[in-house]
Protein backbone atom coordinates (compact mmCIF):
# COMPACT_ATOMS: atom_id res chain seq x y z
CA UNK A 1 0.00 0.00 0.00
CA UNK A 2 1.16 3.55 -0.66
CA UNK A 3 2.64 5.51 2.16
CA UNK A 4 0.45 8.29 3.48
CA UNK A 5 3.45 10.63 3.82
CA UNK A 6 6.18 10.20 1.23
CA UNK A 7 9.26 12.44 1.40
CA UNK A 8 10.12 11.71 -2.23
CA UNK A 9 7.14 13.84 -3.25
CA UNK A 10 8.77 16.83 -1.59
CA UNK A 11 12.07 16.20 -3.31
CA UNK A 12 10.46 15.70 -6.68
CA UNK A 13 8.12 18.65 -6.53
CA UNK A 14 10.74 21.25 -5.66
CA UNK A 15 12.38 21.27 -9.12
CA UNK A 16 8.90 21.43 -10.65
CA UNK A 17 7.97 24.43 -8.55
CA UNK A 18 11.21 26.40 -8.86
CA UNK A 19 10.70 27.58 -12.47
CA UNK A 20 7.46 29.25 -11.40
CA UNK A 21 9.27 31.24 -8.75
CA UNK A 22 9.99 33.57 -11.66
CA UNK A 23 6.30 34.45 -11.88
CA UNK A 24 5.97 34.93 -8.14
CA UNK A 25 9.02 37.19 -8.04
CA UNK A 26 8.02 39.15 -11.11
CA UNK A 27 4.52 39.84 -9.81
CA UNK A 28 5.87 40.83 -6.41
CA UNK A 29 8.66 42.92 -7.92
CA UNK A 30 6.36 44.88 -10.21
CA UNK A 31 3.85 45.40 -7.39
CA UNK A 32 6.63 46.74 -5.16
CA UNK A 33 7.84 49.04 -7.93
CA UNK A 34 4.46 50.53 -8.83
CA UNK A 35 3.23 50.44 -5.24
CA UNK A 36 6.28 52.35 -4.03
CA UNK A 37 5.90 55.01 -6.71
CA UNK A 38 2.21 55.45 -5.90
CA UNK A 39 3.10 55.30 -2.20
CA UNK A 40 5.49 58.22 -2.66
CA UNK A 41 2.78 60.26 -4.33
CA UNK A 42 0.29 59.44 -1.55
CA UNK A 43 2.87 60.27 1.15
CA UNK A 44 3.58 63.60 -0.54
CA UNK A 45 -0.17 64.30 -0.54
CA UNK A 46 -0.34 63.49 3.18
CA UNK A 47 2.66 65.65 4.05
CA UNK A 48 1.75 68.56 1.77
CA UNK A 49 -0.44 71.56 2.48
CA UNK A 50 -3.51 70.78 0.39
CA UNK A 51 -6.39 69.72 2.63
CA UNK A 52 -8.19 67.96 -0.22
CA UNK A 53 -5.09 66.00 -1.21
CA UNK A 54 -4.62 64.98 2.42
CA UNK A 55 -8.22 63.77 2.69
CA UNK A 56 -7.96 61.76 -0.51
CA UNK A 57 -4.66 60.14 0.47
CA UNK A 58 -5.80 59.23 3.98
CA UNK A 59 -9.18 58.05 2.69
CA UNK A 60 -7.47 55.85 0.13
CA UNK A 61 -5.19 54.36 2.76
CA UNK A 62 -8.05 53.60 5.13
CA UNK A 63 -10.18 51.95 2.48
CA UNK A 64 -7.35 49.86 1.08
CA UNK A 65 -6.27 48.73 4.51
CA UNK A 66 -9.80 47.64 5.32
CA UNK A 67 -10.13 45.52 2.21
CA UNK A 68 -8.91 41.92 2.48
CA UNK A 69 -6.38 41.12 -0.24
CA UNK A 70 -8.53 38.43 -1.74
CA UNK A 71 -11.56 40.71 -1.94
CA UNK A 72 -9.48 43.42 -3.61
CA UNK A 73 -8.10 40.83 -6.02
CA UNK A 74 -11.59 39.76 -7.08
CA UNK A 75 -12.73 43.37 -7.30
CA UNK A 76 -9.94 44.23 -9.74
CA UNK A 77 -10.18 40.93 -11.62
CA UNK A 78 -13.90 41.19 -12.22
CA UNK A 79 -14.34 44.93 -11.82
CA UNK A 80 -11.78 46.37 -14.20
CA UNK A 81 -12.89 44.32 -17.26
CA UNK A 82 -16.52 45.12 -16.40
CA UNK A 83 -15.79 48.85 -16.32
CA UNK A 84 -13.68 48.61 -19.48
CA UNK A 85 -16.50 46.73 -21.16
CA UNK A 86 -18.81 49.68 -20.49
CA UNK A 87 -16.46 51.78 -22.57
CA UNK A 88 -16.37 49.16 -25.30
CA UNK A 89 -12.91 47.88 -24.44
CA UNK A 90 -12.44 44.14 -24.24
CA UNK A 91 -9.97 43.13 -21.56
CA UNK A 92 -10.88 39.46 -21.41
CA UNK A 93 -7.67 38.27 -23.05
CA UNK A 94 -5.39 40.24 -20.82
CA UNK A 95 -2.83 38.29 -18.79
CA UNK A 96 -4.09 37.46 -15.29
CA UNK A 97 -0.75 38.63 -13.89
CA UNK A 98 -1.75 42.18 -14.80
CA UNK A 99 -4.71 42.10 -12.39
CA UNK A 100 -2.54 40.63 -9.69
CA UNK A 101 0.05 43.36 -10.14
CA UNK A 102 -2.67 46.03 -10.09
CA UNK A 103 -4.19 44.59 -6.91
CA UNK A 104 -0.98 44.35 -4.99
CA UNK A 105 0.36 47.67 -6.28
CA UNK A 106 -2.76 49.41 -4.95
CA UNK A 107 -2.43 47.63 -1.65
CA UNK A 108 1.31 48.13 -1.33
CA UNK A 109 0.91 51.84 -2.10
CA UNK A 110 -1.38 52.26 0.91
CA UNK A 111 1.11 50.53 3.17
CA UNK A 112 4.12 52.35 1.72
CA UNK A 113 2.50 55.76 1.96
CA UNK A 114 2.39 55.27 5.74
CA UNK A 115 5.92 53.85 5.88
CA UNK A 116 7.24 56.81 3.89
CA UNK A 117 5.23 59.42 5.78
CA UNK A 118 6.19 58.22 9.24
CA UNK A 119 9.87 57.84 8.40
CA UNK A 120 9.92 61.29 6.83
CA UNK A 121 8.28 62.79 9.90
CA UNK A 122 10.71 61.01 12.19
CA UNK A 123 13.54 63.22 10.93
CA UNK A 124 13.67 66.41 12.95
CA UNK A 125 12.78 69.46 10.89
CA UNK A 126 15.67 71.33 12.53
CA UNK A 127 18.13 69.58 10.21
CA UNK A 128 16.24 70.90 7.22
CA UNK A 129 16.42 74.41 8.66
CA UNK A 130 20.13 74.06 9.36
CA UNK A 131 20.64 72.92 5.77
CA UNK A 132 18.90 75.90 4.20
CA UNK A 133 20.75 78.18 6.63
CA UNK A 134 24.11 77.00 5.28
CA UNK A 135 22.94 77.72 1.76
CA UNK A 136 21.33 74.54 0.47
CA UNK A 137 18.17 74.92 -1.59
CA UNK A 138 15.02 73.24 -0.29
CA UNK A 139 15.46 70.44 -2.82
CA UNK A 140 19.10 69.91 -1.90
CA UNK A 141 18.18 69.85 1.78
CA UNK A 142 15.62 67.12 1.13
CA UNK A 143 17.83 64.99 -1.09
CA UNK A 144 21.09 65.31 0.80
CA UNK A 145 19.97 65.51 4.42
CA UNK A 146 16.37 64.44 5.06
CA UNK A 147 15.66 61.65 2.58
CA UNK A 148 18.85 59.62 3.18
CA UNK A 149 17.96 59.49 6.88
CA UNK A 150 14.28 58.83 6.26
CA UNK A 151 15.32 55.99 3.93
CA UNK A 152 17.24 54.26 6.72
CA UNK A 153 14.27 54.61 9.06
CA UNK A 154 11.96 53.22 6.38
CA UNK A 155 14.10 50.19 5.48
CA UNK A 156 12.95 47.70 8.17
CA UNK A 157 9.27 48.53 7.62
CA UNK A 158 9.78 48.39 3.88
CA UNK A 159 11.32 44.94 4.25
CA UNK A 160 8.47 43.71 6.42
CA UNK A 161 5.87 45.05 4.02
CA UNK A 162 7.65 43.36 1.17
CA UNK A 163 7.58 39.98 2.95
CA UNK A 164 3.92 40.53 3.71
CA UNK A 165 3.22 41.27 0.05
CA UNK A 166 5.03 38.17 -1.11
CA UNK A 167 2.98 35.96 1.17
CA UNK A 168 -0.31 37.63 0.28
CA UNK A 169 0.72 37.20 -3.35
CA UNK A 170 0.08 33.46 -2.98
CA UNK A 171 -3.62 34.32 -3.23
CA UNK A 172 -3.14 35.05 -6.91
CA UNK A 173 -3.75 31.36 -7.71
CA UNK A 174 -7.43 31.96 -6.91
CA UNK A 175 -7.86 33.79 -10.20
CA UNK A 176 -5.78 31.20 -11.98
CA UNK A 177 -2.31 32.71 -12.04
CA UNK A 178 0.30 30.00 -12.30
CA UNK A 179 3.00 31.13 -9.90
CA UNK A 180 4.61 28.66 -7.49
CA UNK A 181 1.40 28.49 -5.50
CA UNK A 182 -0.65 27.93 -8.66
CA UNK A 183 1.82 25.31 -9.84
CA UNK A 184 1.60 23.52 -6.48
CA UNK A 185 -2.17 23.35 -6.86
CA UNK A 186 -1.72 21.90 -10.35
CA UNK A 187 0.73 19.25 -9.11
CA UNK A 188 -1.70 18.24 -6.36
CA UNK A 189 -4.56 18.04 -8.83
CA UNK A 190 -2.31 15.92 -11.07
CA UNK A 191 -1.84 13.52 -8.15
CA UNK A 192 -5.60 13.15 -7.81
CA UNK A 193 -5.40 15.31 -4.67
CA UNK A 194 -3.15 12.89 -2.81
CA UNK A 195 0.10 13.88 -1.17
CA UNK A 196 -1.00 17.48 -0.90
CA UNK A 197 0.84 17.76 2.42
CA UNK A 198 4.21 16.99 0.84
CA UNK A 199 3.67 19.53 -1.93
CA UNK A 200 2.61 22.22 0.51
CA UNK A 201 5.66 21.44 2.61
CA UNK A 202 7.88 21.88 -0.44
CA UNK A 203 6.11 25.17 -1.08
CA UNK A 204 6.58 26.30 2.50
CA UNK A 205 10.28 25.51 2.33
CA UNK A 206 10.65 27.63 -0.79
CA UNK A 207 8.80 30.52 0.87
CA UNK A 208 10.93 30.16 3.98
CA UNK A 209 14.16 30.32 2.03
CA UNK A 210 12.90 33.28 0.03
CA UNK A 211 11.81 35.12 3.18
CA UNK A 212 15.11 34.51 4.95
CA UNK A 213 16.98 35.74 1.89
CA UNK A 214 14.91 38.94 1.80
CA UNK A 215 15.28 39.43 5.53
CA UNK A 216 19.05 39.04 5.33
CA UNK A 217 19.22 41.39 2.37
CA UNK A 218 17.43 44.09 4.34
CA UNK A 219 19.62 43.59 7.38
CA UNK A 220 22.64 44.07 5.11
CA UNK A 221 21.11 47.17 3.52
CA UNK A 222 20.40 48.64 6.92
CA UNK A 223 24.01 48.11 7.94
CA UNK A 224 25.31 49.69 4.76
CA UNK A 225 23.07 52.73 4.87
CA UNK A 226 22.92 53.48 8.58
CA UNK A 227 25.90 55.82 8.57
CA UNK A 228 25.90 57.86 11.73
CA UNK A 229 23.32 55.61 13.33
CA UNK A 230 25.52 53.00 14.93
CA UNK A 231 27.51 54.02 17.93
CA UNK A 232 31.01 52.77 17.37
CA UNK A 233 32.16 51.43 20.68
CA UNK A 234 35.77 51.96 21.54
CA UNK A 235 37.55 50.41 24.45
Amino acid sequence: MEKYFDVSYIVESVPMLIPFLKVTLMVAGLSVLFGTILGFILAAMKIGNSKIAKKIAYGYTTILRCTPSIVLLFLTYYGIPAIADNFGVNLNDIDKAVFVVITFSLQFAAVMSEVIRTSYESIDRGQFEAAVCVGLSNTQAYWRIILPQAFVVALPNFGNSLLELMKEGALAYTIGLIDIMGKAELIIAGNYNTHALEIYLALAVIYWILSIAIEQLFLKLEKVFSKGKQVITTT
Binding site: D124, G126, Q127, E129, A131, I145, G228
Partner: peptide, 9 residues
Amino acid sequence: FQNYNLFNN
Protein backbone atom coordinates in the same frame (compact mmCIF):
# COMPACT_ATOMS: atom_id res chain seq x y z
CA PHE B 1 20.72 76.35 17.07
CA GLN B 2 19.71 75.57 20.60
CA ASN B 3 19.61 71.85 19.86
CA TYR B 4 22.55 71.89 17.44
CA ASN B 5 20.64 70.51 14.44
CA LEU B 6 23.68 68.73 13.07
CA PHE B 7 23.21 66.59 9.99
CA ASN B 8 23.09 63.16 11.59
CA ASN B 9 24.03 61.33 8.40
